[in-house]
């Protein structure tokens, strides 16, 4: 689904990302871990064509994201609150995304209503603008927004941060279900090693822009990661 070839990003003389080869198959729950400055967000930004690569290519479904915009119909992301439109209500925001993805208002309403357990009655019908939501609720709203229109690739940056414990656990179930039911490919970055090893089938560890580990998740993965990060 996603393939990366000798992708690099340099700022001035400093290399912040240097990925030789990375392939993510369709339907994979792909986890990305690493300390601040490891290059996680840079990678996501390159994938979404928000910054220009210094060299190499990244393609989604064989489409080079820098050459064509044809990846947009089946790709979506929630990186941070700048992915929300602050002056809209949640419903208006969902309808906006939905209409860009060719869904009717009724379809969108029906789709998001199914996530009511995840929303915990804090998101829909709130009669307030997204900018007035708390950080955690903004995140909840944004994550579900990224699922509208059945995208094949969903990129989530730190989805667990700012969520309350109940919602974190519900999110894990939700992600697994979505991947299983629709074959959605998820790219998830997280600082929370427990959650990311719980959810993801594969975990890539970045350090200073380079892949240090590329692991198929097993029961011992969490220990392995904890060991790495404690040194």
């Amino acid at each position: 689904m996603i393939s990366v070839h000798s992708l690099s990003k340099k700022y001035g003389g400093a290399t912040v990302l240097d990925l030789q080869e990375l392939n993510i198959p369709k339907g994979e729950l792909f986890g990305l871990v690493g300390n601040n400055g490891a290059g996680k967000t840079t990678f996501f930004s390159l994938l979404l064509d928000l910054i220009e690569s210094s060299s190499g290519t990244v393609s989604i479904n064989e489409i080079d994201v820098q050459k064509s915009e044809a990846w947009k119909p089946f790709t979506s992301a929630f990186i941070d609150e700048s992915y929300l439109i602050g002056y809209l209500t949640v419903e208006e925001y969902y309808h906006f995304i939905g209409s860009l993805r060719g869904e009717t208002i009724e379809e969108v309403d029906l789709f998001v209503k199914a996530f009511e357990p995840f929303f915990n009655s804090e998101i829909l019908n709130q009669k307030k603008y997204l900018r007035d939501f708390s950080k955690g609720n903004q995140k909840k709203a944004g994550i579900i927004g990224a699922l509208i229109g059945h995208p094949e690739v969903v990129i989530l940056d730190e989805p667990f941060a700012n969520l309350d414990p109940t919602t974190q656990i519900r999110l894990k179930t939700l992600l697994k279900e979505e991947a299983q039911k629709h074959g959605t490919t998820f790219l998830i970055s997280s600082h929370d090693l427990t959650h990311v090893t719980d959810v993801c089938e594969r975990i890539v560890l970045l350090e200073k822009g380079v892949i240090l580990k590329d692991i198929k998740t097993t029961p011992s993965t969490l220990k392995e990661l904890e060991h790495y990060f404690s040194n």
Binding site: L48, K72, S82, Y83, G86
Partner: peptide, 14 residues
Amino acid sequence: SEYYSFLMGQNLPY
């Protein structure tokens, strides 16, 4: 500008 990255990733031709 507050949500330009979001717009650029949407299924929305320039």
